[in-house]
């Protein structure tokens, strides 16, 4: 199939950036969206032009590196899938496709479609850990965990940290991401020791990074490749309330 692409090109963080029109010709419907961009890039390099910068790593929906806004939707038209899991069969010959980076103050564009998601790393650094003893790994079944909690924690743990929730949110809030991390760790006994401070510290860091506040639009859930539930935000708000109370009564 032949496609017309309008791709956001931006030389660096301080450049204004603009859409540039490209033609991608003879693309197989079996190609993935990112392979389509690879093919275009090979063409560009052969013509002596600079290829389009975009991020990806695993290309199987598990690492969270990829992320493009495709025709206005973070990760494109497909639900419950990351950009790398999108295939060209979802498009028609002759389609026009608009491709943009995540847009949020806390995710500055580094180049073209690549944004700096270091803010997520810093949020994880203040709370995304548990304390463990060094030495031999404990026996897997030594600590009993309620099945419901194990399942819920597993759901939260499927967040790959891609940042689509931020790109979709009118407030550029990262609450779905933070709540997934707080939920994943706080639901398990191993995560309890730091639980109170974790919520407070991660939310404080979230705000400091310049993400907005959550006003329950739910756009995040709609685009999340792992379909993380909004319930985690509600759960985190309850944790936050409890932690704030506990902190003030100390």
């Amino acid at each position: 199939m032949d496609l017309i692409l309008h791709v956001w090109r931006q030389a660096g963080p301080t450049d204004r950036g603009q859409f540039v029109r490209y033609e991608a010709k003879g693309i197989s419907e079996h190609a993935s969206f990112l392979e389509m961009l690879d093919i275009l890039n090979e063409d560009l390099i052969e013509k002596g032009e600079e290829p389009i910068a975009f991020d990806s790593d695993c290309r199987e929906g598990i690492c969270g590196m990829c992320g493009l806004v495709i025709n206005r939707f973070p990760h494109g038209p497909q639900h419950g899938a990351a950009t790398c899991q999108l295939h060209m069969r979802h498009f028609q010959d002759g389609d026009q496709i608009w491709i943009e980076p995540w847009r949020a103050k806390a995710f500055p564009v580094l180049k073209d479609l690549v944004v700096d998601r270091g803010a997520f790393d810093r949020i994880l650094q203040v709370g995304g850990f548990i304390s463990v003893r060094t030495g031999a790994a404990p026996d897997a079944n030594a600590i009993p965990i309620r099945k419901e909690h194990a399942d819920l924690s597993m759901d939260a743990a499927s967040c790959i940290g891609c940042g689509a929730c931020v790109a979709a949110c009118p407030n550029a809030s990262a609450m779905l991401f933070v709540s997934a991390k707080v939920g994943q760790l706080g639901l398990l006994p191993q995560g309890r020791p730091e639980h109170r401070e974790r919520v407070l510290r991660m939310i404080a860091q979230h705000d400091e990074e310049g993400f907005g506040t959550c006003t329950n639009h739910g756009e995040c859930h709609a685009v999340c490749p792992k379909e993380i539930s909004l319930d985690f935000i509600a759960r985190m708000n309850r944790d936050l309330f409890g932690s704030a109370l506990a902190a003030s009564s100390l």
Binding site: A11, G12, I45, G48, E49, E50, P51, A53, L110, K111, V114
Partner: peptide, 13 residues
């Protein structure tokens, strides 16, 4: 090999 761009900025090639 052809490596476009320069070494001063993000250069995936």
């Amino acid at each position: 090999v052809r490596v476009p761009g320069n070494g001063e900025e993000l250069n995936q090639s």
